[in-house]
Write a protein that binds this DNA or RNA. Sequence first.
DNA 1: TGTACATCAGTGAACGCGCGTTCACTGATGTAC
DNA 2: TGTACATCAGTGAACGCGCGTTCACTGATGTAC
Lengths: 242, 242
Amino acid sequence: MPNLRERVRAEIIAEIKAAARRQLADEGANLNLRAIARELGMASSAIYRYFASRDDLLTALIIEAYDAMGEAAEKGEAAVPRDDFAGRYAACWAAIRDWSRAHPHQYALIYGSPVPGYRAPADTIGPAARPVAVLAGILRDAVGAGLTVPPEPLPVPDDLAADLRRIGEDALFAGIPPELLLRGLTAWAQTFGAISFDLFGRLNNVISARDSFFARQVTEMTAYVGIPGAAHQARPGVTERR
Amino acid sequence: MPNLRERVRAEIIAEIKAAARRQLADEGANLNLRAIARELGMASSAIYRYFASRDDLLTALIIEAYDAMGEAAEKGEAAVPRDDFAGRYAACWAAIRDWSRAHPHQYALIYGSPVPGYRAPADTIGPAARPVAVLAGILRDAVGAGLTVPPEPLPVPDDLAADLRRIGEDALFAGIPPELLLRGLTAWAQTFGAISFDLFGRLNNVISARDSFFARQVTEMTAYVGIPGAAHQARPGVTERR
DNA sequence: TGTACATCAGTGAACGCGCGTTCACTGATGTAC
DNA sequence: TGTACATCAGTGAACGCGCGTTCACTGATGTAC
């Protein structure tokens, strides 16, 4: 049972992070410790009782963002019946996108351009992988349920084939054939690309029907990664969610 | 004929921009005018003879980056015979990606997370559209040459259909049917997404065969936008180029 | 070709500001007996 | 239950630093006659 000090400490850490999150909107990854302290009505030096440096606070925010997106992906996907693979895939992406649109500055922190001079420490790797884990799980289950690998596999160059062999050894991707794994990775990169294009403003004055545009892409991606039944299941799963 | 003053002036503007470009690597979009002046051995106030403010210099860099990428796309595409649509498409993307990998910080400036507090002025719009113009030109030509629209068009929601109608009125997209236009926009967003994933480090420890991975995606995208003959033409066009 | 004036580049000092971080210190909370 | 000590949160001053921008001024280049 945590004593008073420990509980207060946890609360203040949360308050500092909340103020820092609010700052992201104005300054991006350029956190201003003094401004955070000012907002909380404390001396700027007091921050150092909770975070060893500005970079440490930034790291905490990054991990928090990864975890929040990961949790959203997990919850969204978990709400769909296990045997509805297209629905799970669509729900996972819808949850990722919804979270991203609701927290654009946190999204920019983790999926935007790298912060110059900042090197992410090792403990960001786990949280960063959570959405991938969800997507991989859907593919694994679909393969286990006897899904057919997409037709007409293209020849894969040696170096890429080696990557796929190496990645395929991870338990996360157990049982997924290389061609499908490659498609899964492609869909992963491209769908996040679609989210970034939206959030970073590249669709301004081009596409205003953002939800429909994204939903359509997810539907196509679902078929692309070999999951059947996408056409009539995925679109509602994505668009009606918001 | 420009006199001495004008020539020197143009040279110094170029030097300031070059120093600023070098700075992007260390500081991102957070340009440091004094550091630039220091590097050039001039007083910091002298910069103001050439740029009215820090934001003005940033805008100049952004326009320059857009133009450089646009020019690369145009030149890359122009080197391919006009009737080799798959080759033109692949060459355009290869040029865009090559430029981006060669100038990652300039790429981040224009395709990364938006700079908080910075609003791009109107004169960035033209240069920003150059790669789109090249890609659209290929599609237009392909349609003109009797290319078949991709099979099994999915139903398009009303709001998205309205976007496509509006965009389709632009001369840039003249003659491209809505379904193909939608695919073209999707491929545009997703392929840039693939480039960003690479450059922003999200493929680290995942894919090391970056060229092959990208080339494969372009090949598939070529077919996706209805351009035939991609399978054996596009890949060499992309990979052998580097 | 030479002269008188206008234009411009560049300087250096200054303004006003704010940052991240350290440090010695105070007072409150927690712990062990 | 009370006491003695250890631990910790928070303060406020200070350090060292650098920033963007302005301004009056100097000296060089360009222009018009």
